[in-house]
């Protein structure tokens, strides 16, 4: 079954999702990776306002290739970056800024899974490297903030239309598709070791 959701996401939308579901998104999607997390949390500590509102938002772990055509920016390629790099910052980011969805690849660690459960946020996996397919669902660019961080690290404000397919990788019930796969890999490891003539 494929669902279509619009951002900003309500807590109800988010809490109704379960791992393994395929969804498509409409509405605003913000990019943000290492530097955006660091910057936003620093701003908060200093009591400064950040330039965008992440409440209920879809935060995309992505450093896109953008091109300026006249005065307008356009998305050239925008696949996900490795989410685990944000593991140490994401629980606090979710607590303070309350995004509704994090879009990325590779999954995230237990403290983030816990924060998603507590504050109502899901992890949506998008195919890594499939940057042209992703860009196809990002129809226009409303603006950019923190451009001084560099093209990959800035906050790009993108308008999504039928953006996906996205797979719910972590839901608000504490389930993670990545943890399930990791358990299966552990189960499969003895057979792999035997095949390679290694001690079990």
């Amino acid at each position: 079954m494929t669902k279509r959701l619009k951002t900003p996401l309500s807590e109800n939308d988010v809490r109704s999702l379960n791992v393994g579901e395929a969804i498509y998104l409409d509405g605003v999607v913000y990019t943000g990776r290492d530097e955006v997390h660091i910057h936003a949390l620093e701003y908060l500590e200093k009591g400064k306002n950040i330039p965008v509102d992440f409440k209920g938002a879809a935060l995309f772990h992505c450093g896109p290739i953008m091109r300026k055509v006249g005065e307008e920016w356009e998305v050239v390629a925008a696949g996900p970056t490795t989410s685990s790099r944000m593991n140490s910052l994401e629980p606090q980011f979710i607590e303070k800024f309350r995004p509704g969805a994090i879009i990325g690849k590779g999954g995230m660690s237990q403290p983030t899974i816990d924060a998603m459960k507590q504050y109502g946020c899901v992890y949506l996996a998008i195919t890594g490297g499939a940057a042209v397919l992703a860009a196809k669902g990002l129809k226009s660019v409303s603006g950019v903030e923190w451009y001084e961080l560099g093209m990959p690290e800035a906050v790009w404000i993108l308008n999504a239309e039928n953006f996906g397919p996205l797979t719910v990788g972590i839901d608000t019930h504490g389930k993670s598709l990545f943890a399930d796969v990791s358990d299966k890999v552990k189960e499969n490891e003895p057979a792999v070791r035997e095949r390679l003539g290694l001690k079990k």
Binding site: A22, C62, P64, A77, G79, G129, A130, A131, V132
Partner: peptide, 24 residues
């Protein structure tokens, strides 16, 4: 679904003469 997305992406990149992944 993941592999279909990959194959579709390869096709789109070729047609559009666009980098297949944003991380070049």
């Amino acid at each position: 679904m993941q592999l279909k997305a990959i194959m579709e992406n390869i096709k789109l990149a070729g047609e559009g003469n666009t980098p297949m992944c944003q991380d070049t």
